[in-house]
Simulated scan of single mutants.
Amino acid sequence: MLKPITIQADQRGLLFHKGSYVKRLLPGTYRYFSWSQHTVAVLNITKPFSVESKDLQLFLQDEELLRELDVVRVQDHEIVVHYEDGQFAQVLKPGVYAYWNLLKKHTFVHTDIRQPELPAGIDRSIIAKLTPYVQCCEIASHELGFLFYDHSLQRELAPGKYYFWKGPVSVLTKTVDLRQQQMDLIGQEIMTEDKVTLRLNFVCQYKIVNPQRVLELKAYDEQIHIQLQLLLREYVGTLKLDELLKQKEDVASFILSRIQEKEDAFGVRFLGAGVKDVILPGEMKDILNTVLLAEKKAQANLLTRREETASTRSLLNTAKLMDENQTLFRLKELEFLEKICDKIGSISVTGGGDLLERLSSLISVNK
């Protein structure tokens, strides 16, 4: 009894006899006796070449079959990007793959992941589809990057976006900020020469000019911080409290000049420095406030005494002039009479005589 097998135009057949591969079958109808132990595997040529429970190497000996297949071998150190008709299809891991080349054109981009950076042949538009295999690094416009493979420095990275394979090589990028930066020393407790413990808030501006030198230093910002602390203690410890309060600007000038001597060692350029605040202990504040209050009171008393002395001297000069000049004395009397009249509602004078003489006589009587 014959068993018919039909192979469509988009199919190929693989003939087996007693489980062993014999040959490929083109589209058409084939008949085999049921007792002949022939079997046929029908494959869709739009799909990858794959036969269940059979190794691919078994079919690669057939030259006729090979002419209809694209075979790609992916080594352990490779990743292959597979395109079908120019469009991304998939990423191939190590192994051997075969694809029918009858209806579709297959292209493969081999990349050696021992060289981690993605090659130029891979279109950046498909990066999102490669996320499980790729890591990204971004360098901002104000930064300079450094690329390390297995902790070994390779090169500098300009601002931009970079992609690397996740492979056997460890990829690390470090960035250095090239903008002007500020370091604050908050609440530095320092003792002056006269044994007064106070707290200083100090600020320093700097900019990195040698990024590679900065990378060579472990926690370079902490080292700068400690150096500033030491310089502050060195300078403030030689001053008394009163001198420090008068020479705050000199503190900044001294610290800046001394720290600039170490610019090459730190790989930075120090631009400015200053004392923001001098914070005194509570008891010392009370003492200084008392002293300040006493000084202000003494100044006020001095001004008062000066004004009193000037007023007395003025009165004395006036009295002398009136003693020497009766007309001036008379005018002064009239001035006082005018002031009295301004404050009195009515005046009654009895008797004869001139009104002005009578008023004058009243004042003379009172005197």
Rank of each mutant, 00 (worst) to 15 (best):
L2F: 14
I5M: 07
T6C: 08
Q8W: 09
Q8D: 11
F16M: 02
K18H: 09
V22R: 03
K23C: 12
T29A: 09
R31N: 07
V40C: 04
V42E: 03
K47R: 14
K54G: 00
D62C: 02
L66A: 12
R67G: 04
R67A: 05
L69K: 01
V72F: 08
D85Y: 08
Q90G: 07
P94D: 03
G95E: 14
Y99E: 02
K104P: 04
F108C: 00
T111K: 00
P116R: 07
P119A: 08
D123L: 03
R124L: 06
I126N: 02
K129D: 08
P132Q: 05
H142K: 06
K161V: 14
K161W: 00
T175S: 15
Q180S: 10
Q180I: 13
M183T: 06
D194S: 05
V196P: 01
V196F: 02
L198Y: 01
F202T: 02
C204T: 14
N210C: 06
I226K: 11
I226G: 06
L228M: 12
Q229S: 12
Q229D: 13
Y235K: 13
Y235D: 07
T238P: 01
L239G: 07
L241W: 03
D242I: 12
K246S: 10
I255H: 06
I259L: 14
G267W: 15
L271Q: 12
A273K: 03
G274D: 04
V278P: 01
L280C: 07
I287M: 11
L288I: 07
N289F: 02
V291P: 09
E295S: 15
A300L: 02
A300E: 11
N301Y: 13
T304R: 12
R306W: 00
R306G: 01
T312Q: 10
N317M: 05
T318E: 08
N325L: 03
N325W: 04
T327P: 04
L337Q: 14
D342S: 14
S346T: 11
G351I: 06
L362T: 12
N366C: 09
